[in-house]
Nucleic acid binder design. Structure first.
Length: 718
RNA sequence: GGUCGGUUAGCUCAGUUGGUUAGAGCGUACGGCUUACAUCCGUAAGGUCGGGGGUUCAAAUCCCUCACCGACCACCA
């Protein structure tokens, strides 16, 4: 054995060895009480390299997977990739911009094809990166969110939701990003604190305070609080729009805060969600004055085509000229911005597909209450409950090309919609007309990834687990898809492991859609992990320049070192501060393990009669310590306390085994070979889920019985 | 404004049913090339566990309160 463990010489070869041997595919159980252990991998976005956050979840999930595989559970870790709708289109458009192009330079099909090729290339790249990190996922079951079979299931779910009355097309205020050119759900809107002008405008009978004077053209009423004594006698009277001169009725609504501004609110149902609500109640007209490019429409000609923010200044000037601006104050408030561009979201009126969320949140809440799905960390359960109580109807249409096209066709004659399971309908279901046009919109990515656990399993696999007791026995699928063996055997899956920042986007949607489509929770436990931060606990970002690339680190120090550093010292659920020093330290540990093995195996003595080796207090001590360690590590892993398990193994191998026992017994080296080898073997097994490469490398050197004896397939110590 | 979380060694963090001298990694100081490893070995310094109050034989751990930090949410036009 070499003096140092050089990971570069081993990692690739070992990964191939595992993959070729079929070790990643679940084995049929040999006894009845071996329950399947399943994790569906959160499919990374196939649009960029893996970052350090991916590396963390890959490490956590791989540790759990390898542990359960060694314990004898038929274990499946199913990999995949996400087309990641808007995220990918955003990344792709940035690339286009570098070439001086934009999305509008291409027609729909061309753009789609270009993105498709880009994604395909990235997907391959991403898969090789997963391999480099040692992910022992079952590549024979690899899935992509745009696989035709997956898309088919997504369509079936949509159709079913529609037939059940849970999908509707509504004209609502949507969160529209003019830069992205699409609407978003409430979750994609971020809020920025800003200082803005607060204009007090003269509406004749009342003064109105507003931050958005450019929307006055869309005003259809003025509202005051019914309890507001100042305005009581004005209710039902008229106010006059400045510049426009149009009369508005003054109405009363409890939503108006009398403390704010002047207590009188201009009602703009076409560009404000609250106003929309008030407008619906009072049956007010809805006027749009800003279009999807963020430009003014339906205004006096001089403003038309101007960006709303620019128009604001122009209009203010004109209002000032007519002495309609009574006062300008500064106001500190929050503004909704696009989560990608950080530019203001335009709330505007649009017709989109919505999912009625209440019946679905009810399913999810019940499942959480009944503990059919358990959130491992309590603090996140509180967050989940809070969200489930407050979610609004879900806008699932996106006005982008990259994604799954919505299977809805509109009749050219009667304008009614016909929804199918993906196929173009022959005729309008309403009037029979044969001329129909498909909705150009695509689904919100989260609508398809929300179906990921059952969609991946329902699309089947090459390998079969026939004659195994199904886990999902007796499940009645709501959607019309035949159950596959994989689905019956592995669904509901064991653990869903992902970052806490997509709890609402993804996890809750999976619970809701999973329960809806299959009648059963998609997973029994939810393990949420924290974010990776830099060595000072600061958020990692490109602009800060503190990015840690997991693959560069792996090349430098080995995948084992990177993995270990990603769980070291911090609970899975908490944010972790990662430093290169820590990775280096773990590289040193890998080398330590290597040298312990080297010492034991290189000096392998010819011991004529193993049985007659003397056994003294030191030997008994290390065996006892090992037994204690096995119990502790097993318990820690079962509770997802990975840092504790890792630290205990580290401490055992380095301090107890190497520095203590090994040093102490060097003088009677010819008596300890059997004990040394035994402790080494068991230690390697315990460490294997954490540092799979170095442990397997050592195993293959001198411990494996034959070519087929892989550490990855060994049994977990008892 | 609301909800949740945090405050433990210089730094980053463990400490889960309250119980012996509060731990780890890194860093620091000092000493060692001891034929497995200098990616190493040995020794050491360093904490009134954010402040205050309470419960208890016993509190970093439970309760109350204050301060500060952070995350998430929210229709303040």
């Amino acid at each position: 054995m070499d003096k140092f463990y050089d990971h570069q010489n081993y990692e690739k070869g070992i990964y191939k060895l595992w993959e070729k041997s079929g070790a990643f595919s679940p084995k049929k159980p040999t006894t009845h009480n071996q329950q399947p252990f399943t994790i569906i991998m959160p499919p990374p976005n196939a649009n960029e390299n893996l970052h350090i956050g991916h590396a963390r979840f890959i490490t956590v999930e791989d540790i759990l997977t390898r542990y359960h595989r060694m314990k004898g559970n038929p274990t499946l870790w199913l990999p995949g990739a996400d087309h990641a709708g808007i995220e990918t289109q955003y990344v792709f458009e940035k690339k286009l911009k570098e070439k001086g192009k934009s999305r509008s330079d291409y027609d729909r099909d061309t753009l789609y094809k270009m993105i498709w090729e880009y994604v395909l290339e990235n997907e391959k790249n991403m898969e090789s990166q997963l391999r480099a990190l040692g992910a022992s996922c079952d590549w024979t079951r690899n899935k992509f969110t745009l696989d035709p079979k997956i898309v088919k299931i997504v369509y079936k779910t949509f159709k079913k939701l529609y037939d059940d009355g849970l999908v509707y097309r509504g004209e609502r205020i949507v969160n529209y990003c003019p830069k992205c050119g699409t609407s978003f759900s409430q979750l994609e809107v971020n809020y920025l604190e800003r200082e803005d002008n607060f204009y007090y405008l003269d509406y004749g009978t009342v003064i109105i305070a507003t931050t958005r004077p450019e929307t006055i053209f869309a005003d259809t009423a003025v509202a005051v609080n019914p309890k507001d004594a100042r305005y009581k006698n004005l209710i039902g009277k008229k106010a006059v729009l400045p510049i426009v001169g149009r009369e508005l009725t003054i109405i009363a609504d409890a939503l108006v805060d009398p403390e704010f501004g002047t207590g009188a609110l201009k009602i703009t149902p076409g560009h404000d969600p609250t106003d929309f609500e008030i407008g619906e109640k009072h049956k007010l007209a809805k006027i749009s004055v800003i279009d999807e490019k963020g430009e003014m429409i339906n205004t006096p000609p001089k403003y038309i085509g101007i960006l709303s923010e620019v128009a604001r200044e122009e209009i203010t000037k004109d209002l000032e000229q007519e002495k309609k601006v009574k006062k300008i104050e500064k106001i500190h408030h929050t503004v909704g911005v696009c989560y990608k561009h950080k530019t203001p979201i335009e709330p505007l009126l649009s017709k989109q597909w919505f999912i009625k969320i209440k019946p679905l949140t009810k399913l999810a809440l019940t499942a959480i209450n009944d503990k059919r799905v358990k959130i491992v960390t309590k603090k996140y359960e509180k967050v989940a409950r809070n969200w489930l109580k407050n979610l609004k109807d879900w806008n699932i249409s996106r006005q982008i090309v990259w994604g799954i096209r919505i299977p809805a066709w509109r009749c050219n004659k009667c304008f009614e919609w016909t929804i199918t399971e993906g196929k173009q309908p022959d005729s309008c279901k309403n009037c029979g007309c044969q001329k129909l046009t498909q909705d150009p919109d695509t689904f919100d990515t989260w609508f398809s990834s929300g179906q990921w656990p059952f969609a991946t399993l329902l699309t089947g696999s090459e390998t079969s687990l026939k004659n195994s007791t199904p886990a999902a026995k007796g499940l009645k699928l709501a959607i019309d898809v035949p159950a596959t063996e994989d689905f019956e055997y592995f669904y509901p899956t064991s653990v869903l492991e992902t970052a806490y920042d997509i709890l609402v986007f993804w996890v809750l949607r999976m619970i809701m859609l999973g329960l809806y489509a299959t009648g059963e929770v998609p997973f029994k436990e939810i393990l949420l992990h924290g974010l990776v931060r830099d060595q000072y606990g600061e958020k990692i970002s490109k602009s800060k320049g503190n990015v840690i690339d997991p693959l560069i680190m792996s090349q430098k120090y080995g995948a084992d070192a990177v993995r270990m550093s990603l769980i070291w010292g911090t609970l899975v659920e908490n944010d972790i501060a990662l430093s290169e020093d820590n990775i280096k330290g773990q590289r040193n540990f890998a080398n330590k393990v290597w040298n312990v093995a080297r010492f034991i195996l290189q000096n392998k003595l010819e011991v004529p009669n193993v049985k007659s080796q003397p056994f003294n207090e030191d030997d008994k001590w290390i065996i006892k310590e090992l037994k204690t360690l096995i119990k502790k590590v097993t318990r820690s892993l079962d509770k997802y306390r990975l840092n504790e398990a890792a630290e205990d193994i580290y401490n055992f191998i380095w301090n107890k085994f190497a520095n203590n026992y090994l040093e102490k017994t060097k003088s009677r080296r010819n008596e300890t070979q059997k004990t040394l080898e035994y402790v080494l073997r068991e230690s390697l097994k315990l460490l294997h889920p954490f540092m799979p490469f170095v442990t397997e490398a050592i195993w293959q050197k001198d411990l494996a019985k034959d070519r087929n004896d892989l550490l990855i397939n060994s049994s977990w110590p008892k």
